[in-house]
Amino acid sequence: MVNFMYEERRITAGIIGEIDHHNAAMMRRKIDMELKERVPEEMVFDFERVTFMDSSGVGLIMGRYRLMNEIGGKIIIKNASDRIKKVMKLSGIDKVARML
């Protein structure tokens, strides 16, 4: 599940539950709809309520990173647990997105 929060030119996607290949497809559709509609300058992924993530989560972030790059915006990753960071670091995504 994804909850959205809006502040001026920023969208925060609060992801709830497990991010795997099955769930990522739905999350991707929802987030992309918001991005296309609002064209924000910043897209924040909030991982506070994520209970599981495999490399599908990395695919989800990398895809949105590309999209945000196209529209000249940036990605911020918030509240990722050490475990989630471990998966992200294998991809090097921590080098292109800001981690809070």
Binding site: S56, M62, L90
Partner: peptide, 14 residues
């Protein structure tokens, strides 16, 4: 197209 990160084996390995 499916946005696979190509990290499956890397995750299993680590």
């Amino acid at each position: 197209d499916d946005e696979r990160a190509g990290l499956g084996f890397a995750v299993m390995e680590s």
